[in-house]
Amino acid sequence: MGLLAFLLIGLAAWLIWTGRLQRMSAKDGMALGAALVGAVMAAKGKPVIGAPLLLGAALFFFTKSQPAKKRAKAATPSVSPAPQDIAAARKLLGIGADADARAIRAAHRRLIASVHPDKGGTEALAAQINAARDLLIKEAAQRH
């Protein structure tokens, strides 16, 4: 039990040291909680309950640590975006059709500063704004 506690303390220290606790999603938290419950159950003499929880959490974190290329077997084909998607992205960022990559990034920075999740905004809105920026930068690169 002492070795298990030492390993858990080491895991927590590593998570804090690398800053992963700050970037932890809800799924990460649930997997970490399952690992802790599994470790406690295994330490209390119930390895049949604890081992699957520990192994499941370890598998989750292992697959998450693999690069996205290795996880995705088939690459999605490159499809040109629809004109209405580009128009919606421009409207979201508040830029004109002639905006270059620098103007797109500047508009993105101004907008994301006010709606960032750390400032009280939602992750969904920030993701939409980031997707609009990426779409418009790709479209601007294709134009030039």
Rank of each mutant, 00 (worst) to 15 (best):
A13G: 10
A42Q: 05
K73F: 15
S80D: 08
L7H: 11
L8S: 03
A12D: 09
K91G: 09
R20S: 08
V37L: 08
L36I: 06
F62S: 10
K91N: 10
M24E: 07
A26V: 10
H116T: 05
L8D: 07
T18A: 07
R102E: 15
R110T: 09
A89D: 02
K119L: 10
P67R: 10
G56P: 00
V37H: 01
S65R: 15
L93Q: 00
G29E: 04
A35H: 04
K27E: 13
A89L: 04
L11C: 04
G120Y: 02
G38R: 00
D118P: 00
Q66Y: 12
A99W: 02
M24R: 09
A35T: 02
L36M: 13
G96S: 09
A13C: 09
A13K: 12
S80Q: 12
D118E: 05
K70H: 08
G56F: 06
K44F: 11
W17T: 15
S78P: 04
A101I: 14
T76E: 15
G120C: 04
R109N: 14
L15R: 12
R90D: 04
I104H: 00
I16T: 12
I9M: 10
A68R: 15
L111S: 01
A127S: 11
G10E: 07
M30G: 05
L53D: 01
G29R: 15
K119A: 15
A35G: 12
K119S: 13
P47Q: 07
W14D: 14
V48G: 05
G121Y: 00
G10W: 12
G10A: 14
I112N: 03
G10H: 05
A72Y: 09
I112F: 02
L93A: 00
L92G: 05
P67V: 13
F60L: 13
K73T: 07
S65V: 06
D100C: 11
A124I: 05
S114L: 12
K44H: 08
G33M: 11
M30W: 14
R23E: 14
L55M: 14
